Simulated assay, not measured.
Amino acid sequence: MSVMDHFTESGKSSDEIVLNFDKGNKLYVSESLLRYASPVFETMFEQKFKESETREIEMNEEDYNDFFELLLNLHPGKQKPVDEQNVLALVSLAHKYQMDLLLNRCKEKMLDMLHRLEKEKNKESPSERCRAVGNCFEILIKADNTKLEDLSTAAIQVIASFGYTTIIGSPPPVFGQVGTPLRSFSQVASTGTGETNGATAYKEDKQRDVAATIDDPIKQCKELFENIPDDLKVRVLSQRLAFCDKQ
């Protein structure tokens, strides 16, 4: 019997809990496994919520495949490793359900990813550099959402090392350029560009000529920067300025 059968077929555990997901998907899990892995589930069972009394828990807020991946990681007979394909999903679940050991493993994997991605800044292709920065932004967003401050700081440092143009898809703003009104640093951060007329031309020449598809890493990178919270924008741009001061 495979480990996966423990979760997809009923009757494999004497203390079975049924997890109900959207579209009628179900997973069958040992209550002891959930208690051991997560104080959130332990409290849920101890307080005898309606779900624990009926031996079923509604999991409509969770993605079925992501939670299945989590269980494969937790099961002692499988212990599927944290890798680059599953870490972004696992870190959110580990944070939500207070699985500290798994959270630390996810953090270490994302730090390894940042070290690897930082080497991409020397690539000649703008698309390859933007793809790497886009991956760093995804790590930064997860780190911010899961309160991993040291990981957030590491991600910001790597992102800033790539340079302004790669980060936001436009060249640096020229403050005080003749005919261009001065803009504050906070305005640049809140808009994500602070661009001049020349920057607008750059966008038209370098970005709009590229097919506007979801597979366009330059477009993706720009959108990721524009959608992060303003405080993270400020930190990224401040770190970039700090790098420039050292050069």
Rank of each mutant, 00 (worst) to 15 (best):
D5W: 08
H6M: 04
F7W: 10
F7S: 00
S10T: 04
S14A: 14
D15R: 03
E16Q: 14
I17F: 07
V18P: 04
N20K: 15
N20Y: 09
D22L: 01
G24R: 01
L27W: 01
L27K: 09
Y28L: 03
Y28C: 01
V29Q: 04
V29G: 07
S30F: 06
E31G: 03
L33P: 08
L33W: 04
L34M: 06
R35L: 08
Y36K: 12
Y36E: 15
F41E: 09
T43E: 13
M44I: 00
E46Y: 04
E51R: 11
E51H: 08
S52G: 05
R55W: 01
I57R: 09
Y64F: 11
N65S: 12
D66E: 15
F67G: 12
F68N: 05
P76T: 13
P76L: 11
K78D: 02
K78P: 03
P81Q: 03
V82K: 12
N86T: 08
V87M: 10
A89W: 09
S92F: 12
H95T: 13
H95L: 05
Q98W: 04
D100V: 15
L102E: 03
N104C: 07
R105I: 10
R105G: 13
R105N: 14
K107G: 14
K107V: 04
M110Q: 15
D112M: 14
L114I: 08
E120P: 03
K121C: 00
K123H: 05
E128H: 07
E128Y: 01
E128L: 05
C130S: 02
A132V: 11
A132T: 03
V133C: 06
V133K: 08
C136K: 04
E138Q: 12
I139T: 08
L140Y: 13
I141Y: 02
K142T: 14
A143D: 06
D150Q: 15
D150K: 13
S152Y: 08
A154P: 08
A155P: 11
I156F: 05
V158C: 04
I159G: 03
I159H: 00
S161P: 06
F162A: 05
T166H: 07
I167S: 03
S170G: 00
P172L: 14
P173L: 10
V174P: 13
R183D: 00
R183C: 11
S184Y: 00
F185V: 11
Q187L: 07
A189H: 06
A189E: 07
S190M: 07
G192D: 10
G194W: 00
T196I: 05
T196V: 02
N197A: 13
G198Y: 10
Y202C: 09
D205Y: 12
K206H: 15
Q207Y: 03
R208V: 05
V210R: 15
V210A: 04
A212T: 11
T213K: 06
I214F: 06
I214C: 12
D216Q: 09
P217L: 04
I218F: 05
I218L: 13
K219P: 00
C221V: 01
K222F: 00
E226L: 13
I228G: 09
D230I: 14
V234H: 06
R235E: 14
D245W: 02
